Computed example of a mutant assay.
Amino acid sequence: MEEPQLIYLLSDATGETAEKIVNAALIQFRDKAVRVKRLSHVRDKNSIFKHLDEALKSRALVVYTMVNRELAQLVHDECEALGLPHLDLITPLLMKVSEFFGRSPKQTPGLLHDMDEDYFRRIEAVEFTVKHDDGQELRHLPHADIVLAGVSRTSKTPLSTYLAHRGWKVANVPLVKGIEPPVELMQVDPKRVAGLYIDPQRLAELRAARLRHLGQDARAAYSDLEEIEEELRFAKAFFRRNGWIMVDVSGKAVEETANEVLVKLKLK
């Protein structure tokens, strides 16, 4: 059986980027026995000397991603001195981008990994929020970062979506006058719940427009101003009893409302 050849991956961050690139290249050499050894968080000279001495024993190919120029140069010089084949995956790109932007790179390891972590966190938040829109999946309310409550047409869904795209897992629950709120809502930590309300006249206009869009009578009780005023009184009293923060969404952009929610919940 053929002895596998070694590829050493050295990185001052996680090394995930280098591993993905190398594995993409290795697909073109499926007939070769290869073992990839990833070495993460290599950030000092002694670690570099140690790993390169090990690589020398196997005559390995050294692939490295060091955003710190001094360390990248050290790996290059040592590999040259030891006669090890080597490839710097990041420095040429950093220099070209630096030239393009007319500024030096930050030389901070791990920025790409941090970006990936943030991206996947936001994706997870969006998926959670979609599944927990308009009172769905109430059993998962304890897992929400933020719970929004309010009567119909108080911007619960757009606000939830906006917050989710910024990494917050949001659930929203509609309140209906005359119907007991779900038990699960009452079990959520009050410090994570925001009660939304709106100017009665504006809400009447929004509801009437919604009814017209659905081809229904815009004069129904759903859009009646007196009914709406009673609904909002009920909602505000309910918010106060439960110790929830209250946010007026009247005439505000979703970004402004989202910021107010985060500030009042002390999440920002």
Rank of each mutant, 00 (worst) to 15 (best):
E137A: 12
V151I: 11
R139C: 04
I90D: 04
H140Y: 13
L89E: 09
L265N: 04
D145V: 07
L159G: 02
A144G: 07
A235V: 03
R43Q: 14
S47D: 12
Q136W: 01
H140Q: 13
L26T: 09
G135C: 11
E124Q: 14
G15K: 02
V22N: 05
R43T: 14
R59Y: 05
R241V: 03
R166D: 09
H76K: 15
F120A: 08
L138T: 10
V97R: 10
D224F: 00
D217N: 07
Q187Y: 07
A144Y: 04
N172T: 06
D88W: 11
R192H: 09
L175C: 07
Y197A: 03
T161R: 12
S58V: 00
Q136G: 04
L111Y: 03
I228T: 01
V42E: 01
K177L: 14
K131Q: 13
L138F: 10
H143N: 13
E70N: 10
P181K: 06
D88T: 12
D31F: 04
E16L: 15
S250Q: 05
E99L: 10
L9G: 05
E184Q: 15
K264L: 08
L232F: 07
D77N: 12
L175T: 05
A237H: 08
A220H: 00
K106M: 13
V261R: 02
M115A: 14
G243T: 02
V173G: 03
F29P: 02
K268S: 13
L112C: 02
E260I: 09
D133H: 07
I27L: 14
R233Y: 08
L148G: 05
A55C: 08
L138G: 09
L148M: 03
R38Q: 11
E3K: 15
C79M: 10
A171Q: 08
F238Y: 15
K131L: 13
T157H: 03
A235K: 00
V263L: 12
